[in-house]
Structures are given as C-alpha cells and as structure tokens.
Amino acid sequence: MALLVSLLIGVMVTCGVYLLLRARTFAVVMGLIMLSYAVNLFLFAMGRLAATAPSLVGLTGAKDVAADPVPQALVLTAIVIGFAMTAFAVTLALRANSELGSDHVDGAAPDSSAKESAE
C-alpha cells in the first residue's frame, strides 16, 4: 500500500509541476489543484498508513496501533485553505483574462511564440 500511495502522490506531483510550467492560466490552475491534492495525500500519509487502525486508542483494546489524529487535522486545514486559494486563483485568472484579453500568464503571448505559430 505504501508503494501504491507514494507512486500516486509522485504521479500527481509530476502532473502538477508539468501543468504549472505551462503558459496558459487554465493549465496552471489545474496544476495547482493537482499539486494541492498530492500535498493533501502526502500530509495524510505522514501519519503512517494503516488500514485497520482505530481512530481512537482503546476502542478495540489494541493499544499498539491507532490512527494519528494530527495529520488528519492538518489535512482538513490544508484542504480548506487550498480550496479557498484555488477559488481565488480561478477568479483571478478569469479577471486577468478579461482585463488583459489573453489567458497567457504574462498577460500576452511573447512575440517569439507568435512567430512560431505563424510559421
């Protein structure tokens, strides 16, 4: 399970970073979303992965394994903050698109890329 989760997080981070480096705001925002999902999973996994651990110590009498509540609390906070920030980034990207007339992250595509597309 650890391998699967780490692979999953790794793939999501890779996709997120790739999308972040794109030139269009839509792709960049998608990249941010991917990255924040990966980060949330990563934080959650930092409490150690255990499928059968009870959420409270002492419920089953098994005192040696219990789910760590702190990463869960951290993830909840991170999800809320990440959600709000994503909403803000989407709004800002839309506003920039309408004000600058382009969805390029720099407000306008550089000349070189315009030439390339013309060729």
């Binding site: 990255l35 990563f42 600058l100």
Partner: peptide, 22 residues
C-alpha cells in the same frame, strides 16, 4: 491583474512546498 497573477500563483506553489516540508 498581470502582477497579481504572478504573485498569487507563485505564492500558492510556495504554500504547497511549505506543506510538504511540514
């Protein structure tokens, strides 16, 4: 809007890295 977009996107990425470090 142009400067704000850069500022916001960079800082959002920074926040993700902060969480990974934490």
């Amino acid at each position: 809007s142009r400067a704000g977009l850069h500022y916001v996107l960079l800082n959002l990425t920074g926040s993700s890295l902060f969480l990974i470090a934490v």
